[in-house]
């Protein structure tokens, strides 16, 4: 029986799938056994499915062969897949960058901008910059150096003591 001779309607042809599913009525089974067109229809789809089964199983076998994870150390129900892990790492990185940016912005905005128009009273209380602090430290060191390199002179206390023990010119004159 050729396809032109097959008396089944399209709806009845769908019943042929029951042959593949394994739940066909006896009448469908009889027709499927005798009709070449219907047999071809079933065989064609079955061949595609068979090829798919063979290839997909070989593919899965190849994937399994490269699998080395130890079952005993596996923790179940933690479905973190590779794309999830990649996305989480990206989100963490973005979060860190955003946090750093925000912190830098806040730090800069919290510091007053000192220029020539800034009143001296405000300048006095403004936090000094690193350059200012270095300049102040250098000035202090220079002052210490200068003090240390001055010629030695008698301490004022000693000068005062010496002047109190020496005879006063006026009193000497009195004695004379």
């Amino acid at each position: 029986m050729t396809s032109a001779e097959c008396p089944l309607t399209p709806e009845e042809l769908e019943e042929l799938d029951e042959l593949m599913i394994g739940a066909a009525r006896p009448a469908v089974q009889t027709h499927g056994a005798g009709c070449a067109s219907c047999r071809d229809r079933i065989t064609s789809l079955s061949e595609s499915i068979e090829a798919y089964n063979v290839a997909s199983l070989a593919w899965a076998q190849a994937r399994s062969n490269t699998f080395t994870r130890d079952l005993s150390t596996h923790t179940p129900t933690r479905h973190i897949t590779a794309p999830m892990a990649r996305s989480m790492a990206t989100m963490l990185l973005l979060g860190a960058v955003a946090g750093l940016t925000a912190w830098t912005h806040l730090w800069n905005s919290a510091r007053p901008v000192l220029d020539a128009a800034t009143p001296p009273a405000i300048r006095a209380f403004a936090p000094e910059t690193r350059a200012q602090q270095i300049a102040r430290d250098n000035a202090m060191l220079e002052a210490i150096d200068a003090e240390l390199t001055e010629p030695e002179s008698a301490p004022p206390a000693l000068v005062h003591a010496a002047s109190s023990t020496a005879p006063h010119p006026a009193s000497a004159q009195d004695r004379d």
Binding site: S56, L57, W59, A60, S64, H74, R78, T81, A82
Partner: peptide, 25 residues
């Protein structure tokens, strides 16, 4: 059983990475 299960779960979910985890579970 792993290859056959992996095939089933991979094509059922459409996600090979997720399938690896589910098959392991």
């Amino acid at each position: 059983h792993r290859p056959r299960l992996l095939r089933f779960v991979t094509f059922s979910t459409g996600d090979p990475d997720l399938a690896e985890t589910i098959v392991q579970d």
